[in-house]
Design a protein around this nucleic acid. Structure first.
Lengths: 194, 194
DNA sequence: AAATGCGATTGATACAGATCAATGGAAACG
DNA sequence: CGTTTCCATTGATCTGTATCAATCGCATTT
């Protein structure tokens, strides 16, 4: 499992991490399994883990006042999962995180990450790049939310994350895009017929 | 102008930055004025500046295929403004940035920031906290986009950024929320009458 | 193999918010 | 100081997407 994280760090930083640095990373991360439909985080509790998915699929979502779910993050192997706000400030989260497939994780805590950033320059660099990528992606998703039609949202997801379509049920993709499952189904039909 | 940035750094890091560190920061930032309606960044060009607003107000926006503007960022004094993706990777931006009021900035470049993060631990810390805050705010805004009604979006903006209402025309606030000016006006009437 | 349940599809209808259009007021400008 | 431009408001109408409802298929359980 650790070699998946290692390859990921190499790819993101466009370098090869030295063995003596990677030792620190191995020490900082524990393995953890989460079965399908089991929770990694419940609304109201503090998100104590920052998790790297080595296999499987997860989602983060909120439940609004009417009881409707809204998926805020979908993630598969090679992605990070946590509620960053809760994790960094140790405040209760408003989100739930559960596994959509049986999932294997490498998890670490805030203390360990803080130490790790001092011990490994490569890890620090990776964290920076991660922040940046996350920020750019979030910006685009905000833009999609305020300016795209249902069809444009569908095409946007197909372009940016085609791999999601064979990993998550269509109803979850709909929620992730802010659409109902019915609209998603109709848009799909429309798009595929052209 | 520099003392505004100084106070900002002190507040964000919850510390008092030593004089010997702040010297580096002063050296890294130049002052720059942008008159109302003038541009700081044009779509298609690289965003070479990371700017701290000391006074005034700015917006970032895209123009879609139908020629409609969509405001992605609104910012006033005490906020940062740039296209992070373009700035970090030196690629052409898809956004425009212009001044809504006559604006005074402290601007720096990628090279200078990189050096500054090595020279000043306080600045590095500030950058981290900034990333984190930005990430949390972006997450909430995405959530608003996929799950809020027009009225909820209006209330959300009133709750999180009441100061925007006397700084930006209502039509810009509407665009920022992904509403038409007409809907914004009607929602406003509705909300204020209760 | 039957039973159960979840997800996708399809149709009918409702509604929130967009669009089109006109008016009025206030700020910016020559 | 008049003129122009921008912005907010209001009304009428249209439309994209949600909602409600029924059916179907496939996978999981017993």
């Amino acid at each position: 499992m650790y070699d998946i994280l290692r390859k990921y760090i190499d790819r993101v930083t466009a370098a090869v991490i030295p063995d003596e640095e990677f030792v620190y990373i191995e020490q900082a991360f524990d393995t953890k399994g989460v079965k399908r439909k089991q929770f990694l985080l419940h609304e109201g509790s503090v998100c104590r883990y920052m998790s790297f998915i080595t296999s499987g699929a997860m989602r983060q979502y909120t439940i609004d006042d009417n009881g409707a779910e809204h998926i805020t993050i979908l993630a598969i192997e090679g992605w990070w999962m946590s509620d960053r706000g809760s994790f960094m400030s140790l405040t209760p989260s408003r989100y739930n995180i559960d596994a959509v497939e049986d999932t294997e994780l490498l998890v670490t805590t805030l203390d360990k990450i803080t130490r790790l950033k001092e011990q490994s320059l490569t890890f620090l660099k990776m964290a920076h790049i991660l922040d940046q990528n996350h920020s750019v992606a979030a910006q685009k998703r905000i833009e999609a939310g305020i300016s795209y039609t249902a069809e444009e949202k569908y095409r946007y997801l197909m372009r940016t994350h085609p791999e999601f379509f064979n990993r998550f049920p269509q109803s979850m993709l709909a929620s992730y895009l802010g659409l109902t499952p019915e609209t998603m189904s109709r848009v799909r039909k429309q798009v595929l017929s052209q």
